[in-house]
């Protein structure tokens, strides 16, 4: 490699952007060329000066706050534009009538199942498992009073191996619902409860989606959805105990 060829590659060499053949070529030349060696030393020194020279600026806290505020504002809740939503609801209602008349209820149930799984996953991801953390059902049940227009039955299954962790207000099937959280060994179980007359489905059954098991039933006018990554046998046991 000539001196001129080498000089053209020195920056890429110092930046570690040359392939091994190129690097070897440069190294071989630099060993015998004082001028190129000085250049390499200077480039290394300059790079480390810039990197370690405390030249990096950090965003002021004010900016972080402002950005978050601006984004929240740019993402307005659509409920604010009531008129549009009236139209949208009318269209949605018309579509729903067509769907119902065609007896296409399955997509709705599929949507509900997805919502329940999302709520379950989100409760664990966002580290927001409970609003009221208590293994005492006499603490959990009254907590929902005033937050819901119904009172969800709360059972303590600690003795049977399903520890009550607490309760949470969640939002499923277009309404606020009670979520009760149980724990079996390392697995969390979410139980969603709401009055059954509002639900799109009245079937009972169990299913598996995305690795999560779900069990659904209705009892005494309440609709129950049990969801967890716990195996179906143990989750079934939990459902049986809750139904008792």
């Amino acid at each position: 490699m000539t001196c001129r060829e080498t000089k053209n590659l020195l920056n890429a060499y110092v930046d570690g952007e040359l392939d091994s053949a190129g690097s070897l070529g440069v190294e071989k030349h630099v060993q015998g060329c004082a001028s190129c060696l000085t250049d390499v030393e200077n480039l290394h020194a300059l790079a480390s000066e810039i990197e370690n020279g405390g030249l990096r600026f950090t965003a002021p806290q004010r900016l972080k706050t402002n950005v978050q505020a601006a984004i929240s504002e740019a993402n307005p809740a659509p409920t604010r534009s009531i008129f549009n939503w009236r139209w949208a609801s009318a269209v949605a209602a018309a579509v729903l009538i067509v769907f119902v008349s065609m007896q296409w209820l399955r997509p709705s149930q599929e949507m509900l199942v997805n919502e329940i799984i999302s709520s379950h996953v989100r409760s664990m991801m966002a580290n927001h498992i409970t609003d009221v953390a208590s293994s005492d059902r006499h603490t959990v049940k009254p907590w929902f009073g005033g937050k819901l227009d119904y009172s969800p039955p709360v059972k303590d299954l600690t003795e049977q191996g399903f520890r009550l962790v607490g309760g949470r207000l969640d939002y499923v099937d277009s309404r606020p619902v009670a979520a009760l959280v149980y724990q079996r060994s390392q697995h969390l179980i979410n139980l969603f409860v709401w009055p059954s007359n509002n639900t799109v489905t009245k079937q009972e059954g169990q299913l598996t989606r995305q690795g999560y098991n779900l069990i659904h039933w209705t009892q005494s006018g309440m609709s129950y959805w049990l969801v967890s990554e716990l195996n179906l046998a143990e989750l079934g046991e939990c459902a049986r105990l809750l139904k008792e």
């Binding site: 984004i71 929240s72 993402n75 809740a77 659509p78 409920t79 939503w85 949208a88 609801s89 949605a92 989100r122 939002y171 277009s174 309404r175």
Partner: peptide, 14 residues
């Protein structure tokens, strides 16, 4: 009610 669901989805996106 549809708007409410939309609001929750938007919140998740945010």
């Amino acid at each position: 009610m549809l708007g409410e669901r939309e609001r929750v989805l938007k919140q998740n996106e945010l």
